[in-house]
Design a protein around this nucleic acid. Structure first.
Lengths: 327, 327
DNA sequence: TTGAAAGCGCTAACAG
DNA sequence: CTGTTAGCGCTTTCAA
């Protein structure tokens, strides 16, 4: 690898001067600048980011922590992050944690070592303690997921309200027997969406039937299928189902079809996220739409502000109820 | 940030000794080892990967270049890569290029600067020239996509044969009017799958009808919908459709339903990839299954071998025809 | 306008 | 078994 010394030698200047033309930092005479640039092209020299980072303690790289890329919800959020980051001359690196603490620590090390300047965490299963410790010394923000008590700034939607809206809508179109397919309540969003579900029922004087509240065992299609299977076997079958993710809803939809039932006539179905696949099902899926792209943009803006030492406040974004054929 | 000197001072040893206990490189007396370890925990010291990399010119990080995480095909491949890499003590960083050459060069710089040890490229739109230049000096392998003339080792399936199998199967169950929904033929896989399509037709004495060969304008659902819309309007409507990806097939499936036609009675449908969505459609999708996880494992093994200076050969993997309800 | 030199945090060769 | 020292590739004072 050709390095800055080689260039300096070839251009007959000092490494400092080469560095200066590289960084356009301070005045260099026109003639030496030309000489240096010539040497650079002739030697095909490319400066080492590693050396530069070590010196400047900056990398202009952003880490994005996601539990898994298999969830299409993240796709659009990441698009937003990338768009914004690239415009501000930052690049992003995607890190799948698979909710594995060991992985986490590897990625945390990246920031400790100035290989990255900041972290956007979208992982709900991240170790809160570690994250908060890290956040004391390094720029971190949370996106979609967050800690209610935490000191870490975040952007997200109002999950409780979104769920409330979904259920209120189901009630208004005549449903009284409404089931909930939730994820594991170790996730904050799951707890919040459940609260919204309960609030809506209460507000309309519908009694909570705990046997209609189901916790999916996986976040994949199978989770939705399994949950729906249980609900279909229920002696008092619900007439509507709210699933806390489109993936779960699609699994449920599948199970309903398999049992020869009709959506929405026999059972109405509402999902959450508005992933692109939700328009491809038959019938198409009524769902809560999150402003994923915008959320990504805001997250990127927040972390970059934080990196630059500015004060950042958490931001709650709006959601929408998208009514389609499944209700 | 506390560094190796602080630890050395605290433990009253030299930095070399600290480095030794850190790397378990050579013998250190038990008592000093204890002292150093104590100093490390007391100071909460964590070694800087940056400094280490700069010194060792190694990062144990693998770059994985994908065009976009929105395609679920990549999900399982990446799982395979991660599994294998982590076992061999390498970590992976996902890089979305969005087929944007500027992005590409940023990620290429990471390897030039020893911020990464190797690259697995799955991006079909990557600049071949740059990639090949880079490959002369750095470990690179291609996965799924490859250059037919290239000097870069790869792992993939036999796309021509896979398409041939799909079409042969359609013919054997009685179809003669078989359409192809292809992607842009700038992609090698698209050209190869088309060749397989044509070979099967020829072998069974079916004349090629070019108006049944459609190139989708996008790789998303809409691409499949658009293509299918055209085919449904065709004066001589095909009885079977082979789409070169499940996403396209699902778009097509949707369009067929929208027009009130029945799958497979009116039109049979075959996809490609066997993504998890393909079991969630109604009817479920017949498709060509690629060994995505295995492909990922092999790609990781190859790149690590290459990094370690071993010779690596390209590997062609087997595919499977998975027959479901859509045919 | 330019150069010399220190130093970012670490490892490894060498010497003792 | 341990310390000294050079150096990975770069930027940035300081001095000229």
């Amino acid at each position: 690898m050709v390095n800055i010394h080689d260039v300096a030698r070839k251009a007959q200047v000092s490494v400092a001067t080469v560095s200066r033309v590289l960084n356009k930092s301070s005045a260099v005479s026109f003639s030496t600048k030309i000489r240096v640039e010539q040497a650079i092209t002739e030697l095909n020299y490319e400066p080492s980011t590693l050396g530069r980072n070590l010196r400047k303690l900056e990398s202009r790289l952003l880490l994005v922590l996601i539990p898994s890329i298999s969830n299409p919800f993240y796709t659009d959020v990441i698009k937003g992050i990338e768009d914004t980051a690239i415009n501000l001359d930052y690049n992003i690196l995607l890190c799948q944690t698979n909710s594995n603490p060991k992985r986490e620590s590897i990625y945390f090390n990246l920031i400790k070592n100035h290989l990255a300047d900041g972290i956007i965490s979208m992982d709900p299963t991240v170790n809160k303690r570690n994250l908060m410790d890290l956040a004391e010394k390094h720029p971190i923000i949370q996106c979609s997921e967050y800690d209610i008590d935490g000191s870490i700034a975040y952007t997200t939607i109002n999950n409780e309200l979104a769920a409330y809206h979904a259920i209120r809508y189901l009630i208004k179109i005549g449903h009284k027997k409404i089931a909930l397919i939730n994820s594991d309540e170790k996730f904050l969003y799951a707890r919040e969406r459940r609260q919204g579900y309960e609030r809506a029922l209460k507000e309309f004087g519908i009694e909570l039937n705990l046997s209609w509240v189901y916790h999916a065992e996986s976040l994949g299609f199978e989770g939705g299928q399994q949950a729906m299977r249980q609900l279909l076997n229920h002696p008092n079958r619900p007439t509507a189902v709210f699933a806390v993710s489109d993936i779960l809803a699609i699994g449920a939809l599948n199970e309903i079809h398999t049992n020869g039932l009709h959506i929405p006539n026999d059972i109405a179905l509402v999902g959450f996220d508005n992933i692109s696949f939700s328009t491809m099902t038959h019938p198409t899926l009524t769902t809560i739409s999150q402003p994923m792209f915008k959320m990504g943009c805001i997250a990127a803006k927040m972390i970059i502000n934080k990196i630059q030492g500015k004060k950042v406040e958490s931001i709650i974004l709006d959601h929408d109820l998208v009514i389609r054929e499944s209700t």
